[in-house]
Amino acid sequence: MMLELKFDSRIVKEPIISKATLEANTLINIMRANVGARHGEMVIEVEKSRVDTVIEVFQSYGVEVSKFDRKIIKSDECVHCGACVSICPVEVFSIGKEEKVEADSIKCIHCGVCVNVCPVQALTLP
């Protein structure tokens, strides 16, 4: 399951991912990260059974944690060309039944690469 982390300049200096890994005793996969001097944002993936513990640990360090569910939306404008299929870093898109492009949005990490390659602007990020 994916979580979105937001933190301020104080936490930017802390190795919070390592801390959470050790304290929650679980593996954390960083899907996307944008850490600057004043604030940071990350999308991480953790095992479902450990989610609550991980959230607790992050919150104890003052990290704002939310479940990451702003996933890619594919509209009816899609002509099922497949341009997105090889672009998505986490393989959200595939050619499925009846040769239609299917979006397994649950995997989406909100990177937006697909939005910019779709020839008919059928993809949007909420």
Binding site: V79, H80, C81, C84, V85, S86, I95, E99, K100
Partner: peptide
């Protein structure tokens, strides 16, 4: 990974 650009559908 490979993308088709023509729509088979």
């Amino acid at each position: 990974r490979v993308s088709p650009l023509s729509s088979y559908y």
